[in-house]
C-alpha cells in the first residue's frame, strides 16, 4: 500500500466524459469481455472433437466413390457444425446472466452508467462473436479436410493410366462434386440459427431462477421449434387445426408466438444434398432468424428492465 495518496484531478473524469443514451463503445466493451470470459473458460475445446470427427469421417468413407465420400463428409461436417454451434449457443449463454447476479458482478456493472439494454446487447454480441469464431474455425477445418481428400483423389485419377479426355472428365466431376459455393449459404444459415438460439436462451435467463431451468427451456424450444412445422402440416392436412379453432387460438398460436419455427432452417439440408436453393429463400431464412433475434432481445430487455436484482 503506498504511503501517500495522490490529490484528486482538477476536473473529475465523470464530468469530462459525456454520458450517452446508447454507446456502441460500452456495448463493445461488454461484448469483448464476454468473449474473453468464454474463451478463457476453454469452451473451444469442443473444436478438438469436431476435428477428430472430420478426420475420422474422411477416413471412414474412403472406400466410397469420391462423390459418395464428399457427400458423407459434407453431411457429417455441416451436421456437426449445426449441432455444435446450437449446443454452444445455449450452453455458453445460459450461465452469463445468472453468474453475474450470483457473483454480484452485475451490481458493479449496472452501478456504472450502463443501461440494462446495453448490458444485454453486449452479452449477446459477445456470444455472437464466439459463435462466429467457432463456425469460421470449423469451416476452415472442413475446407482443409475437403481439400486434402480432393488432393488425394485427384492424385489417384492422374496416376490411373486413363486417356487424357477421361482424366479431364473425371477431374471436372471431382471438383464439381467437392466444391459447392452454396455451402457458404449453409454456413450462414447454421450461424443464424445458433444466434437465434443464443438470443432465446438469453431471453429465458432474464426471468429464470437457475441455469438448469434456462437450459431446459431452451432445449425444449429447439425440439418444439423443430416439431412446429410438422405438427402444423399434420393438423392442417387432417383438418384438426382449423383457423381460429380452439386448438389454434389456445395452443398453436401462443406456441408459435413464443418458440421459433426452426424447420425453416432445415434449408441447410437441401444445400448439403446439392439441391438448387434460390438466393431469396436463403435471404428469407436469414431474415427470419434476425427477426427472432431482435424479438427475443427486446423481450429480454422488457423482462430484465423490471427485474429487481
Amino acid at each position: 500500500m503506498p504511503a501517500a495518496v495522490e490529490s484528486p484531478s482538477a476536473t473529475p473524469l465523470a464530468r469530462k466524459v459525456k454520458h450517452r443514451f446508447f454507446s456502441p463503445a460500452r456495448v463493445w466493451a461488454l461484448a469483448t469481455n464476454t468473449l474473453t470470459e468464454l474463451v478463457r473458460l476453454k469452451v473451444f475445446y469442443f473444436l478438438l472433437i469436431f476435428a477428430l470427427l472430420q478426420i475420422g469421417s474422411s477416413l471412414l468413407f474412403v472406400r466410397f466413390t469420391f462423390q459418395g465420400q464428399f457427400q458423407m463428409l459434407k453431411d457429417t461436417s455441416l451436421g456437426a457444425m449445426s449441432i455444435f454451434t446450437s449446443m454452444l449457443a445455449i450452453l455458453a449463454t445460459a450461465n452469463l446472466l445468472p453468474k453475474d447476479v450470483e457473483d454480484r458482478t452485475l451490481y458493479t456493472i449496472l452501478a456504472k452508467p450502463v443501461p440494462r439494454f446495453e448490458y444485454l446487447t453486449g452479452k449477446l454480441l459477445g456470444v455472437f462473436l464466439l459463435l462466429l469464431i467457432s463456425i469460421l474455425v470449423m469451416g476452415a477445418m472442413f475446407a482443409v479436410v475437403l481439400w486434402w481428400r480432393v488432393h488425394v483423389v485427384a492424385g489417384e485419377i492422374l496416376s490411373g493410366g486413363e486417356p487424357p479426355d477421361a482424366v479431364n472428365q473425371n477431374l471436372s466431376e471431382l471438383y464439381a462434386s467437392a466444391y459447392d459455393p452454396a455451402l457458404w449459404a449453409g454456413g450462414l444459415i447454421i450461424y443464424t440459427k445458433a444466434a437465434l438460439l443464443a438470443s432465446l436462451t438469453l431471453f429465458v435467463s432474464t426471468f429464470a431462477t437457475s441455469s438448469i431451468f434456462t437450459i431446459s427451456v431452451s432445449v425444449a424450444g429447439v425440439f418444439i421449434g423443430q416439431l412446429l412445422g410438422t405438427a402444423r402440416d399434420y393438423w392442417q392436412t387432417t383438418g384438426t387445426l382449423a383457423p381460429n379453432s380452439l386448438l389454434d387460438v389456445a395452443f398453436f398460436k401462443p406456441v408459435v408466438l413464443i418458440f421459433p419455427d426452426l424447420q425453416a432452417f432445415n434449408l441447410v439440408e437441401e444445400i448439403i444434398a446439392g439441391a438448387h436453393v434460390a438466393p431469396w429463400l436463403v435471404a428469407k431464412t436469414i431474415g427470419l432468424g434476425v427477426t427472432y433475434v431482435l424479438v427475443y432481445l427486446f423481450a429480454g430487455y422488457f423482462m430484465f428492465a423490471k427485474r429487481e436484482i
Binding site: D103, R104, T108, A111, P113
Partner: peptide, 29 residues
Amino acid sequence: VGFLPENPYFYKYLTGAETLRFYGKLCGL
C-alpha cells in the same frame, strides 16, 4: 457514483489491470 458490493467476485479470468480497463471503458474512458 462508485460502488463496492459486499464480498464481490469480479471476473476472475481477468487480470487486475484488465478489470480496471473494463470498468473504465464502461465509463467512457
